[in-house]
Design a protein around this nucleic acid. Structure first.
Ligand SMILES: NC(=O)c1ccc[n+]([C@@H]2O[C@H](COP(=O)([O-])OP(=O)(O)OC[C@H]3O[C@@H](n4cnc5c(N)ncnc54)[C@H](O)[C@@H]3O)[C@@H](O)[C@H]2O)c1
Ligand SMILES: NC(=O)c1ccc[n+]([C@@H]2O[C@H](COP(=O)([O-])OP(=O)(O)OC[C@H]3O[C@@H](n4cnc5c(N)ncnc54)[C@H](O)[C@@H]3O)[C@@H](O)[C@H]2O)c1
Lengths: 232, 232
DNA sequence: TTTTCCTTGTGAACGCGTGCACAAGTTCCG
DNA sequence: CGGAACTTGTGCACGCGTTCACAAGGAAAA
């Protein structure tokens, strides 16, 4: 079988972008896409596209390009997109509600099937079609829906506790929006999204440019692209 | 004056984390923090802390550590945190509303002062205290509030248009949540946050582990940390 | 003063990611 | 059938980021 060698994390992080780019091509229809085209669609450069795809296998045809439909299939397979990973959201506040109500996650195979909140007014009701449970129900909810992914959208003070409970319940992948360092045991995959930090990085560049323009009128602005991931 | 040499982007991205870690120390009180402690507080390792801080200057005392209060001041200065950068949010839907209503941004110097939406029901009213304007009013709003930062939370189809309008109005830093590749002119700093992509990366690891455990029971799970940035 | 202990600051090595440049392979045209 | 045009796949070089390891420096005790 096609036992793929280790794919570099940087490449893995771009595979979803390629998949997104391939949305431009209809499903089931044979069409050719070149690395150059796909690069434009994904917002990267062509060399990267070719190298990334080469980690998956030899799916292109020299002198021609890639079959869009087949490529989508192969990237999907590598990412395990065929699987559906149900999600539980901890904290149905402003952000949690927005996330739970977001259709884009289900479309990509990550339906939000349950939420956890401590607010008695929310527990027991459905918010935007998502049933809200008390923290004590987490374990059974996770087991029942075979949930492997959790999102933390609680206040920062409650985030570590929520993480602990998620891990205890058997969740092994966590995306957190709380601006705080979380500690999880080995074997648990944690991605922390800190939007205030992102803004502060933008702010640093603004500050820099302002200094440069105010004092010396130096050139050298930038144009960043997608927000990727951290280390292992 | 302390003209700091170019700070590597990877270091810049961690400075806000250090600042966040220093929240553990009261303002105005002299306290000592070692690179080891700060590393724990920020979720990185001590060597990185020392190297990063060394780019800012020599603010530590060998054999002792760093003065927490002074360090906070210096990092703040490097990041330009003294400045306040007002924000305009484009698209007051589920996500936009959550962002606009989020207090953490103002606390870090990024108050949301205005919103743009095409929905006639929203234009002209205040949502959570944020005035909502029609797209045609963008330029004057940006000018009036001296806005340099914009957040895009419109549907994907409208995102490029929103970006163009922001740029035309004079906004030079954009954070986008739309799952689509945006094109902006040179000199504009764009950060794209794609949460579905983040989930798919988690999904890849789940898929991998499942294959490994199902077939060969191989070890090798991971524990990732903060979500950082992309290339220049 | 000298010794001991502690932590910073940094030179240097290493590894990963990126991008170039080109050989290898395919199609199409004359 | 030969050659032109095109695009993939990849070896290689380069640069950035990470980490190690230790000398340099400072405080406190003897
Ligand atoms: N709102 C945003 O746009 C935004 C942006 C960036 C980061 N964040 C972060 O995301 C988190 C949530 O933000 P928010 O604006 O939705 O806050 P919020 O206060 O609106 O909602 C928090 C929700 O979590 C619930 N909760 C509290 N303790 C809990 C626990 N132990 N278990 C489960 N649920 C619990 C509360 O009842 C509430 O419903 C915060 O950490 C915030 O810093 C939010
Ligand atoms: N909701 C989430 O949690 C979430 C998560 C990840 C990504 N996103 C992305 O963020 C974006 C917004 O998501 P949402 O759930 O808030 O969508 P939404 O449909 O709830 O809100 C979109 C808002 O944008 C407004 N709008 C439409 N065209 C506009 C324009 N040209 N200018 C200004 N405003 C315009 C609409 O009137 C609406 O109020 C989408 O691109 C979505 O894919 C959302």
């Amino acid at each position: 079988m096609s036992s793929i060698g280790r794919i570099p994390e940087a490449s893995v992080a771009r595979l979803p972008l390629y998949l997104r780019g391939l949305d431009a091509f209809p499903v089931g229809v044979t069409a050719t896409v070149s690395s150059e085209e796909l690069a434009t669609l994904a917002g990267v450069n062509a060399a990267k596209v070719r190298k990334d795809l080469s980690y998956l296998g030899t799916y292109g045809t020299r002198g021609v390009g890639y079959d869009a439909d087949f490529l989508r299939f192969e990237i999907s397979r590598a990412l395990g997109v065929a699987n559906t990973w149900p999600i539980v959201v901890c904290g149905m506040g402003n952000l949690g509600r927005a996330l739970a109500n977001h259709s884009g996650f289900s479309e990509r195979g990550f339906p939000v099937v349950a939420a956890i909140d401590t607010d008695p007014d929310k527990v027991g009701v459905e918010i935007d079609g998502i049933p809200v449970y008390a923290p004590s129900a987490l374990a059974s909810v996770v087991t029942e829906h075979e949930i492997a992914v959790g999102i933390i959208a609680t206040p920062p003070e409650a985030a570590q506790g929520a993480a602990d409970r998620l891990v205890d319940a058997g969740v092994v992948s966590i995306m957190s929006f709380a601006p705080i360092v979380l500690t999880v045991p080995n074997g648990v995959d944690l991605r922390a999204v800190d939007l205030a930090t992102e803004l502060q990085i933008l702010g640093f560049h603004l500050h820099r440019d302002r200094l440069a323009n105010g004092a010396h009128a130096t050139a050298g602005r930038e144009q960043n692209l997608s927000v990727g991931q951290g280390p292992v």
